[in-house]
Nucleic acid binder design. Structure first.
Lengths: 180, 180
DNA sequence: TGGAGCATGTAAGATGTTACATGATTCG
DNA sequence: CGAATCATGTAACATCTTACATGCTCCA
């Protein structure tokens, strides 16, 4: 009966200035993308569930120049639940399912060109990812976010940059190896 | 209508000397653990599906000193399907869902001790993981696997080692940061 | 008028885990 | 005899994505 972490991801985002399903999705795509992803198919039902459980409240709000929206806010019960979760220890290191490594693992009977093609495409995607991180970094630094929040965002972003950099180096070395 | 990669993971393992659901699970837990995981709840149904599709054959085999088992073998149609998949490009970098980073992202209102506790626990798990990789590496080098397969296994393992090492360094730096 | 951005939501299906159920053999 | 290892399988449930459905407003 484990509770889904996604619930707390949404709850947490309600504390960072995101108050609609739409803006939560934007925040996730923009800033949590390297360690958490959610689709609308999860966000809206989760928001509803949080409201049912008394962890959030919903309010229909009219906007001038934009469609109506539902504004959600975290309740004190919600804050408590979030707090409890934030302080509970992380049980396991999650495993990333990596299609590229899976292919490489079985590549013994493949010609080197095929492997090199995969490696180079992967490398390009890693570079792309790295640049995205740098863009997010600039964005966080330039936008006047609450400084306190921004610190933590930059720290998690740094994790992404560091590990991506390591993957890039591995990729370059492995390409070297297959070119001999 | 994307086809699940898990199907090809199982198909691929049939080419590396694993011929039963049980041994496939062992191989995954032992060597693919850092980039792919499957439970029995997936393995057996997948094996059955592969047989239904003509990509594998099943044979009941009696063993002396052990229970009966079902031995699976890849067919030529299976080899072809695997080949096609192996050569098809990897579309996307997958995102690892990382509970630890999710917590860190929202840790602005937490006391530093809590954050440090999480960081230290995470660091310990990363060290553990790194040691597991080294153990697998020794195992591959010592066991007389087919040299051709072993090469590719060590390359993917190296990816795990490199990125874990980078995560360890990030962890240590971040602990330093919070200790000031 | 048509596209982009804002905004909410659901239904179907894919994917995966956990817990359960069963049972053989070996070794201490 | 009991634990460990070998071995196969399913049912219920959790989780998540994709595709679809809808409709507003602003601006070119």
């Amino acid at each position: 009966m484990k509770e889904s972490h996604t619930k707390y991801a949404v709850l947490g985002l309600l504390t960072t200035g995101c108050h609609t399903g739409y803006s939560i999705k934007q925040m996730i795509d923009g800033s949590l993308n390297h360690f958490w992803k959610i689709s609308y198919g999860q966000i809206y039902p989760t928001l509803k569930k949080l409201t049912d459980e008394g962890l959030a409240t919903a309010k229909d709000t009219a906007q001038s120049g934009k469609p109506d929206k539902k504004e959600y806010a975290i309740t004190s019960a919600g804050k408590e639940a979030l707090q409890t979760w934030l302080q509970s220890p992380v049980e396991t290191l999650s495993t990333e399912k990596n299609e590229f490594l899976l292919k490489l693992f079985f590549s013994r009977h493949q010609p080197h060109e095929t492997t090199l093609m995969h490696l180079e495409q992967y490398l390009a995607k890693l570079h792309e990812r790295y640049e995205t991180y740098q863009a997010i970094e600039r964005m966080i630094n330039e936008t006047l976010f609450d400084k306190q929040d921004a610190d933590y965002w930059l720290i998690t972003l740094n994790y992404g940059k560091k590990t991506t950099q390591a993957a890039i180096e591995w990729c370059e070395e492995t390409i070297q190896y297959f070119n001999n």
